[in-house]
Design a protein around this nucleic acid. Sequence first.
DNA 1: AGGCAAATTTGCGCCGCCTGCAAAATTTCT
DNA 2: AGAAATTTTGCAGGCGGCGCAAATTTGCCT
Lengths: 205, 205
Amino acid sequence: MADQTGLRERKKAATKAALSAATFRLAVTKKGLGSVTADEIAAEAGVSTRTFHNYFPSKEAALLHDFNETTNALLADLRERAKTQPIWDAIRDAGIAMHLDEKFDLEMMRCREQLIHDSPSLIKEQSGQFMALFTEAIGIVAEATGTAVTDLYPRLVLGSALVCIKTTTEHWLSEPGERTLAEAITEGFAVLEHGITKPPSAPGN
Amino acid sequence: MADQTGLRERKKAATKAALSAATFRLAVTKKGLGSVTADEIAAEAGVSTRTFHNYFPSKEAALLHDFNETTNALLADLRERAKTQPIWDAIRDAGIAMHLDEKFDLEMMRCREQLIHDSPSLIKEQSGQFMALFTEAIGIVAEATGTAVTDLYPRLVLGSALVCIKTTTEHWLSEPGERTLAEAITEGFAVLEHGITKPPSAPGN
DNA sequence: AGGCAAATTTGCGCCGCCTGCAAAATTTCT
DNA sequence: AGAAATTTTGCAGGCGGCGCAAATTTGCCT
């Protein structure tokens, strides 16, 4: 449905990426997505304003385009892993396999993180996408654990795991960066596995 | 700052509640907040449109007004409990102490939940408020656990706990309702305490 | 009671977001 | 090249949300 070698699909994806990049660039230079208008974004990317809204329903969605693609990839990966791994490990490894640190520049990631952090509308948008991810993944987890999608347990598992991924990733980003992201995620999951009540063995971290 | 016996404050709170109630009423009857305009809400509450936006920045915020108040109460309660209880118990008991089932009609809560569930803008708004709650609570948790606000551990604890409260509450709402909400929350927390990896003793739930 | 100061309500104008619709331009296929 | 399908674009319109200043209301004090 998406990545057919169709020349058409490629151009669409290209302009979508261009739009997203333009949004990011402008948001950075103008210090906040709030002071960037849809017209400016369209101009920066060399298309009409109407076309911009043809690709993205909002500038927030435009800025979070890669995030969206990443979560989609995570979802596809999780679907595969759930067939052969215990669900907890599957989610963890799917999170690790995203390899954010290889796909993106570290500085850019921090930059993006800060943009999101101090823009209420972006926080909402990102949270909304997380909820969408949750909704789509819950079926996978339910099936893998032999429970119903309406049961409490799969929701607790998935919720905890996603929170863990998000939290550890953010924490890793704000860190002077000695460990790899994979190590950070692994440690976060380990803490939850052992029961969250007691601090981990290395309390200062 | 808020609940002084000042007659003025009372009237403000009253109109705010009226506005919120009007929003809820209209959203229910028109089957979706999306098809309710700010003008209608203002008219329903007997004030001008401008005044409505004077109280709430958006109709979503208006609909989630009680939710907001609830989280504020939770925060205040947590601050107190954190002084004397282990942090995990403090968060759990603060969540239980909200007594949503006593404050609100069950049918109304389900109704509200459904309104939120199939309105992307409401999901975003609610998620955003959760993030705000997280941000405000992280300091409390960090202090209580003797860690820094930038550390990973307090964020994992708080994140897990909040997810647990939200998840169990939603699950409890969709349930034929035999247990109390307090029991549901308690069980959810117990699952996380024991380590999330293995299903709880009663697997069907 | 009456009036004064402060706060609230309201109207107005403005900008920006977002969508539907139909015409124009571009691309793909034959 | 010509036709068909698709994308881009402009236009119009509705709605959301905010600043500002005038008008109204409220609380308080003499």
